[in-house]
């Protein structure tokens, strides 16, 4: 019979409450950063269009 490998245990990381809280905080900050980026895009678009933003058939 072949010998079993000594270490077959799969090391699965565990989400502790502290880690989950940390992840939630990171996600919230990432969301804010993305919103700022989207806002910046919007603002820059308005600036680039300038007065032309109203120059279209209604």
């Amino acid at each position: 019979m072949s010998k079993e490998p000594e270490n077959t245990e799969i090391q699965t990381p565990v989400w502790t409450p502290e880690l989950l809280q940390q992840r939630r905080k990171r996600a919230a900050i990432m969301a804010v950063a993305l919103l700022v980026f989207v806002g910046l895009f919007f603002w820059v678009t308005l600036v680039k269009l300038g007065v032309n933003v109203t120059n279209r058939p209604l």
Binding site: P13, L19, K25, R26, I29
Partner: peptide, 14 residues
């Protein structure tokens, strides 16, 4: 190490 969970805070990324 083995598949570690990211314990970094936003401050760590900054």
């Amino acid at each position: 190490g083995p598949a570690s969970l990211d314990a970094g805070s936003a401050a760590d990324y900054i």
